[in-house]
Design a protein around this nucleic acid. Structure first.
Lengths: 142, 142
DNA sequence: TTTTAAAGTTAGTCAAGGCTAAATTGCTAT
DNA sequence: ATAGCAATTTAGCCTTGACTAACTTTAAAA
């Protein structure tokens, strides 16, 4: 007795917050692979300086993050050269781009100003489950 | 010439990401004041052990966070005693609770499973602008 | 009243994600 | 060919948010 958790399942939030912390850890990775993909598509290559400018951080910060991404197998890079996505990075970038687009389109479709939708989508996209994403898609089509 | 940013305003994402980083910094604070408010409402007081259990972190982590919240004026606490919200903390907690409820209700209203909505709302609530929140409310009423 | 378990605190460690300052490399124009 | 600037890297620092292990305080049971 006295196990509040079992008596009142409403309090079993620990798992939710654990998954939330995981999502957090992935956010920067996702933003980077997405942006690297955009840069390659738009400008032919992804340079540190462009990433720094677009994220509004210093070159040193970009460097650290790229090292981590490389360590985790999302990108390859050689000193003083531009950055490339691995298969793994490409796959993640594609998924993120799609997710972002669905969230953005959905927000606009319900009446959110495009500029606001762009900002909100950037934050929301990392926290939308596959299930909710499907609902967004479904409602977008109808 | 050559100022990509001015030529192509689509690339002016730095501000978006800066605001995103700010939102991040506030997330834990918001989750804590919200949870502390819940605990006081449900159990009469907010103890570290309950926070640790609900967030799924150790007591030491709770301790650190509470110190920061106290430093920032959201809570008061005395050693080995329970935690109280300040006016500032209470105000933030109320705002967060409302926001959470709107996001949750909206997700459920468009067909997301309650359990999934609960999880997604927890992540999304910190990234929804006032504007988008108003759209959610409006669509909830109609 | 004393013992003991639960709760809370402290100290020390780690990774992520920021920063500045300084060193190095690469490229381009003279 | 090289000087100089832009880009990149390195080093060192900070905060947040997590952990474990060890210690202290509180409160309840024996």
């Amino acid at each position: 007795m006295g196990d509040d958790t079992r008596l009142n399942p409403r309090h079993n939030k620990a798992e939710v917050f654990a998954r939330l912390r995981d999502a957090h850890a992935r956010e920067v990775t996702e933003d980077y692979v997405e942006m690297i993909g955009d840069l390659i598509a738009e400008e032919g290559e992804a340079r540190s300086v462009a990433l720094a400018e677009r994220f509004g951080v210093t070159a040193a910060t970009v460097n650290n993050t790229i090292k981590r991404l490389e360590r985790d197998g999302y990108v390859t890079s050689r000193p003083y050269r531009s950055i490339f996505l691995t298969e793994k990075g490409e796959t993640l970038a594609k998924k993120c781009r799609e997710r972002h687009q669905i969230v953005y389109n959905y927000l606009v479709s319900i009446g959110v100003e495009p500029e606001v939708a762009e900002f909100d989508a950037e934050g929301i996209e990392h926290h939308v489950s596959e299930e909710t994403l499907r609902v967004f898609e479904l409602r977008l089509l109808s």
